[in-house]
Write a protein that binds this DNA or RNA. Structure first.
Lengths: 244, 244
DNA sequence: TTATATCAATGGTTGAACCATTGATATCAT
DNA sequence: ATGATATCAATGGTTCAACCATTGATATAA
């Protein structure tokens, strides 16, 4: 094996990854967003213009924009007044990333739903402390929407409003971090619900009304108990249907 | 304004997005992974070959591969026996996506650290239930690394091992979802720590040793108390330094 | 005034050429 | 034979130029 006349040198090197052109570009743009130079709604120059500014080919710019687009950071609009627009972050890419990991068998539905229960416990407690009248109003409207969706058997609207329900609760904590985390989890669960073809039974609406009342009463423990039981039911329903 | 002789038509249409070439390609590859046709370790044909198979330009194929690469689904290796290899999902992409969203929403340090405390409480409780000997061993090694980094004043290693510390704790819950959530939060905090130029005082190492002991004792409440106090200290330190 | 046609800007796609990296193979000196 | 070296071929990375498709603005005609 090794030649013994060579002095054994032990060092720690970090792996290098040669910086590719498109990476350098997407990193720069990402950085400008992190530092607030670029903000949601802003429009970048056209790819042709960016190619000139960066001193690279249009192609490299487009690969960089493509990456940012696939990360839901940008939206590319065609046409005369089109271009690359910085998006509001809606977490859709987070949920897709989680789905990707599930496809690669790194995460199971069990993992997702268990974490969901724990996170919702935290969120419910904070929501009980911080929710205000406008939050209650939003929840009330949302529940009415869901009821209508159940009565008209509108499956898509049922799932949409269900996701909104959890988002509103997360928002009522007044800490956007929770919305950021909950939204993609709800989205992932929704995909399973869709695949399993589950319709929301009317009791669920009752449960949500109950939950809203508990929030109004600032009864965190009660709310946690009700929601945990509910989420368990959902989980069981998905597992039951999926195994067919 | 509107012509009153037109019949008002109320319909609900979903927004269409025309399927672009590279999307069709990346979707097909994603689908093959979801269905298990492609599995981690598999190698795709070269981009030139794929271009022929899909009947599109090499460029479109490369944009598709680029998207999958940026989603940590693929790895592109240069050279003679290189190509596109399906990766094991490691969650780095989920974490980066959450990071991206935090940047887009311009979430404040206050919000991040508050959520961090709450989440770590949950994680510590679960870690106390589920951590095993190998987790304790990893933590012990990690703490030793941190101590060495503090003694040699290696700032980068301090931050790196700090991030690892929280990651190991998250992993010891045995639910990868928590690792995914903790990683970007640690990353963001690290960014603030780096900017503030904070060095880890040696007491922090003591705190972590204490925490490890509490985990071994399965003392969740004790661990939560210690870590909450510590995270508060960190938060104060960052705020104090940043305001200069 | 209201359609309609034209135009220009922008993203989407193509094809060809070349560069850079990497492993395999052949060659050569010992 | 052996080991170093040179060459080659395959693959990803980049560039360039041209063209298509979409979209909003503008000019034109009815």
């Amino acid at each position: 094996m090794g030649q013994s006349n060579k002095r054994p040198v032990i060092t720690v090197f970090k792996p290098v990854k040669s910086i590719r052109t498109f990476e350098a570009i997407s990193d720069q743009i990402r950085r400008q967003i992190e530092t607030g130079v670029l903000q949601p709604g802003d429009k970048l120059p056209s790819d042709r213009e960016l190619a000139v500014q960066f001193g690279v080919s249009r192609n490299s710019v487009r690969e960089a924009l493509r990456i940012l687009e696939s990360a839901s950071i940008l939206e590319l609009q065609q046409g005369a007044s089109g271009g690359a627009f910085i998006l509001e972050g809606d977490g859709s890419n987070v949920s897709r990333s989680i789905s990707d990991m599930m496809a690669l068998k790194q995460i199971s539905l069990q993992h997702v739903t268990e974490a969901r229960v724990e996170l919702m416990n935290v969120i419910l407690r904070l929501a009980c402390e911080n929710a205000d009248a406008s939050d209650f109003e939003l929840l009330e409207k949302n529940i009415n929407t869901t009821r209508a969706a159940v009565e008209t058997n509108d499956l898509e609207l049922q799932m949409e409003s269900t996701k909104d329900f959890y988002t509103i609760i997360a928002q009522s904590t007044k800490n956007p971090m929770y919305t950021l985390i909950v939204a993609p989890i709800s989205e992932v669960v929704r995909r399973f619900v869709r695949e399993a073809g589950i319709r929301i039974p009317i009791e669920v609406v009752k449960t949500r009304e109950q939950l809203l009342q508990l929030l109004r009463d600032r009864d965190a423990e009660g709310a946690i108990a009700v929601l945990s039981a509910h989420l368990d039911t959902i989980h069981e329903a998905i597992l039951h249907r999926s195994h067919h």
